[in-house]
Design a protein around this nucleic acid. Structure first.
Length: 671
DNA sequence: TGGCCGATAAACATCT
DNA sequence: GAGATGTTTATCGGCC
């Protein structure tokens, strides 16, 4: 009964995944209307956007940039996937449950790789790096675009002034309105993009950031561009943030929470109002069209509705549209200090500040968003998750809650670089070949240490692998049971709960597998690893399996690409990649001998593979591991005295030798 | 379909 | 006696 219920609990996780799929499908469907039909839909948006101002609208520019970046990313991923996805890969099996397509990436370019595949292939740091590059590029081009846009506006104004024909206020207001709409759209699209990234777990959002207006972040946030400077310009002189207290639709938490309900946007709110677009979902684009229609409709204005200005945070009461345009809307210019008589050739940001506090707020938001995208690895990152039905119900914020407080497995994310099976709530570790062959535990842990540390995701490794990793990470190559427990809880958020279950499993594995040797120490009993036994227990039948061979080879090539890509990304000063846990040679070297624990064993039975040394490993080490199983016991006993790294520990290296003889010597204990 | 492997649960023994 | 530790068995699911 207990087993049954437990199994049900485990099986409920995949259903949760299906929930993701269904919800994502929903969202995808809704987004498909606006952006899912990238080819045609974008084109429509582009036309509408171009209709209004005769140029590329911010929406389409943003869209275009996203697609460009994703296209590059996908091309890169395709190269990897071509090697990774073997015919027998689990993709086919995933397809049933992988119907879900997370919104943001898929909506931009549904062709080629799916976001899941991206997540499978790329580790979170890589994905984050990719996204950050994408964001940086996007922002840069947006910045250029707005520069041009503002310069054009300014030039037009100057021309009109010099011609002595002051532009009618209404025309000016319309011009400015169009630009403000574009600004809003850009912000909304960015938020939408960010939200979608959060849903996919590609970007984390700290609760404080989510709930708290992003303006609390320092101004000197890691901003790849000087866009905030441009935005602030001289027209937005450090407005007090108190004026921007009202955080309505743009609040990311709210957007996440209302993600499921946005499909039915309020009908009464103006399209560009943040009330209307609580989560910046693709309705932004739809609303763009709506806004165009609004502009065409006399007596209506996207920023005006229900007798008040719909500019976020303004809500100035206006009796009619004319009063709104001539009064509230243009008042912003006067407030800002715009002087039609002066010929200022200043950054045209001052054209915008109809409501300077709001502009400052929005600019701060943007800053915060960009700063958020440059999150530091050291920060506790409650990795966001794809919104599942159950998770969305229980965790409206869409974030992974602290594992210690999590009452139920959340399994928010696909463990990086691994198959979707790793997502199965209780079953990821049940995968055998794929995770072992394609994802060396040590390198995986080295790359995604922060991920597993903070995300309540079950590591896709067997208990034996984890125990071994824990033991081998120590200088002495030995750990007490309690220390192993501590390592588990320290390294994995997942193991901070259900302690009885996994601790029992740990003990079970320690006792069950011969590779774990119990040694009586002065401090008590410690556990060590018998590498030979560990390698022995590896399934040797892989030799004849072309699929596994291909997987393995693909994994190696992936490692090469991964390394090169990480190196390339490292140049972009991506913090995660420079974090000690990522590419730190020291930590990497300490883990290096272990990194092929899962790869080396499968590789080793392949005679021809000996030449193709894994890129991530130094040839000597690799060959060393290869010999572990092939060499006779006496040869490996020659190696035994010295662990791959660290000082040889007599107590650690001794027992394995005894353990090797254990099968013949019943009395296995040394003591 | 069966075997293998890993996860999980549980019972039991031993030790502190 | 309680808890931690260690061993063993049984069952189930995933994968090949």
């Amino acid at each position: 009964m207990m087993v049954e219920s437990a199994s049900e609990t485990i099986r409920s996780a995949p259903s949760g995944q299906n929930g993701v799929g269904s919800l994502s499908g929903q969202t995808d469907g809704s987004s498909g209307g606006a952006t899912g039909t990238t080819a045609s839909g974008t084109g429509r948006d582009m036309t509408t956007g171009a209709d209004s101002n005769g140029e590329m609208s911010p929406a389409e520019l943003l869209h275009f940039q996203q697609q460009q970046a994703l296209q590059v990313a996908r091309q890169f991923l395709l190269q990897q996937a071509s090697g990774l996805s073997s015919p027998g890969n689990n993709d086919s099996k995933q397809s049933a449950s992988a119907v879900q397509v997370p919104v943001s990436v898929a909506m931009m370019s549904p062709q080629m790789l799916t976001p899941q595949q991206m997540q499978q292939i790329l580790s979170p740091p890589q994905l984050q790096a990719l996204l950050q590059q994408q964001q940086a590029l996007m922002l840069q081009q947006l910045q250029e675009y707005y520069k041009k846009q503002q310069e054009q506006l300014h030039l037009q104004l100057l021309t009109q002034q010099q011609a002595g024909k002051p532009q009618p206020k209404e025309a000016l207001g319309n011009k400015q309105l169009a630009f403000q709409q574009q600004l809003l759209q850009m912000q909304q699209l960015q938020q939408q993009h960010l939200l979608n990234l959060q849903r996919q777990g590609l970007v984390s959002l700290q609760p404080n950031q989510a709930s708290g207006p992003l303006q609390t972040l320092p101004q000197a946030a890691v901003c790849p561009t000087d866009l905030p400077q441009l935005w602030k310009g001289e027209g937005a002189p450090g407005q007090p943030a108190e004026d921007s207290v009202k955080q309505e639709g743009l609040d990311l938490t709210g957007t996440a929470a209302t993600a499921t309900s946005f499909a039915a946007p309020p009908k009464v709110s103006p399209p560009l109002s943040h009330h209307t677009l609580p989560n910046g979902q693709p309705t932004v684009l739809t609303s763009r069209r709506d806004s165009s229609s609004h502009e065409e409709t006399p007596g209506s204005h996207p920023l005006y509705g229900h007798g008040e200005c719909k500019w976020p945070g303004c809500e100035t009461l206006c009796e009619d549209l004319g009063q709104f345009i001539n009064g509230d809307l243009l008042k912003g210019l006067a407030v800002e200090g715009w002087d039609n008589t002066t010929s200022r050739v200043q950054p045209p940001a001052h054209l915008l500040p109809c409501h300077p506090p709001q502009l400052a707020k929005e600019s701060e938001r943007l800053q915060a968003m960009m700063a958020h995208l440059h999150m530091r690895p050291s920060e506790p990152k409650p990795f966001s998750q794809p919104v599942t039905v159950s998770a969305a119900d229980s965790f409206p914020d869409g974030l992974v809650h602290p594992p210690t407080s999590a009452a139920a497995p959340v399994t928010p994310l696909r463990p990086p670089g691994l198959g979707s099976a790793s997502l199965h709530g209780g079953g990821p570790a049940r995968r055998r070949s794929s995770d072992k062959f394609c994802s060396p535990i040590s390198s995986e842990l080295a790359q995604n240490h922060e991920f597993y540390k903070n995300a309540d995701v079950r590591p896709p490794f067997t208990y034996a692998s984890l125990i071994r990793q824990a033991i081998l990470e120590t200088p002495d190559r030995q750990l007490t049971l309690n220390e192993i427990y501590n390592w588990f809880t320290r390294m994995f958020a997942y193991f901070r709960r259900n302690t009885a279950t996994w601790k029992n499993a740990v003990r079970h594995n320690l006792s069950l597998h011969k590779c774990f040797v119990r040694v009586e120490n002065v401090k008590g009993a410690v556990w060590t690893v018998d590498e030979q036994e560990y390698q022995k227990r590896r399934p040797p039948k892989m030799t004849g399996s072309p699929t596994l061979v291909k997987n393995m080879i693909s994994g190696l090539s992936y490692g090469a690409l991964n390394a090169s890509y990480q190196a390339a990304l490292a140049e972009s000063s991506f913090p995660l990649l420079n974090s000690p846990g990522m590419l730190n040679p020291g930590s990497a070297s300490s883990l290096l001998p272990l990194s092929h624990d899962d790869v080396g064993a499968p590789v080793e039975p392949l005679p021809s593979n000996g030449s193709s040394s894994p890129p991530r490993l130094s040839p000597p080490q690799y060959s060393h591991q290869v010999h572990v199983k092939e060499e006779p016991a006496e040869a490996e006993e020659d190696r035994q005295p010295g662990p791959p790294l660290g000082a040889p520990n007599p107590s650690a290296s001794g027992p394995p030798e005894d353990r090797d003889l254990e099968e013949e010597l019943p009395g296995e204990e040394l003591s």
